[in-house]
Design a protein around this nucleic acid. Sequence first.
DNA 1: ATGCCTTATTTCATAAGA
Length: 272
Amino acid sequence: MRLATWNVNSVKARLPRLLEWLGEAKPDVLALQEVKTTNALFPAAEVEALGYEVAVHGEGRWNGVALLSGVGLEDVSLGFPGQPSYEGEPAEATLLDEPGLRKPEARAVGATCGGIRVWSLYAPNGRTPDSAHYQYKLAWYAALQPVLEAELRTDPQLVACGDFNVAPTDADVWDPAVFVGSTHVTPPERQALADLRALGLHDIVPKPMKGPHPFTYWDYRAGAFAKDMGMRIDLVYASQAVTDRVAGAYVDREARKGHAPSDHAPVVVDLD
DNA sequence: ATGCCTTATTTCATAAGA
């Protein structure tokens, strides 16, 4: 069984690349992040034509996650209980549930696929450590933790994967000195990941296809990909039972090359 | 060995990404 996660940075802009990649890599389950479209406008028919069932939790302009599965798709959860809403500056009316209360953002979708409980996650960016967005990021992780803790009791086969927007260690950024004072590397963010691992989830570190670093993200700007100025922020956290089945894992950096790529590369995990 | 930002929408400007 092949499982993969990929932040596609707009599923509509990436549709030719996505369909091409599905045909080549042939994952059984693919978790997508930043689909950046609504459920209604998600290109479900194109994906279904390749033999996948689709669960989408989208919103209009930003965020949005999805699961594609060729091995069944059951008990779909759009979001999770207790997920926080961003509580920063006032939002425009379209983002509000009611005056002053923002809608929860579409950052999580879960489903049971081929006997594995799978979550496609897109953690908030956090922007800067002194911002309300950063507090929101930590609150989001704090709310996610008990949900996964509860599911692990009933679903020993569990994978939480996606764009975690945290580099677990200094080795997971191209130059730690550049990130001093920035999000993605702060102790509270790394503690949030450690709290997930304390539940019994294991970081399935993929092999890089080239070079020493299994980075999964490279900025579009300044030739960052060509210089391998990347970060490992797309993670696969697997329960012990799934970890015991891992036969291999790699970052498909080929998907970051060429015409109109996402700024993230897929992480692929093969299970016995 | 790779291409010097890209995406969506409230579009010819702005917000967001990390």
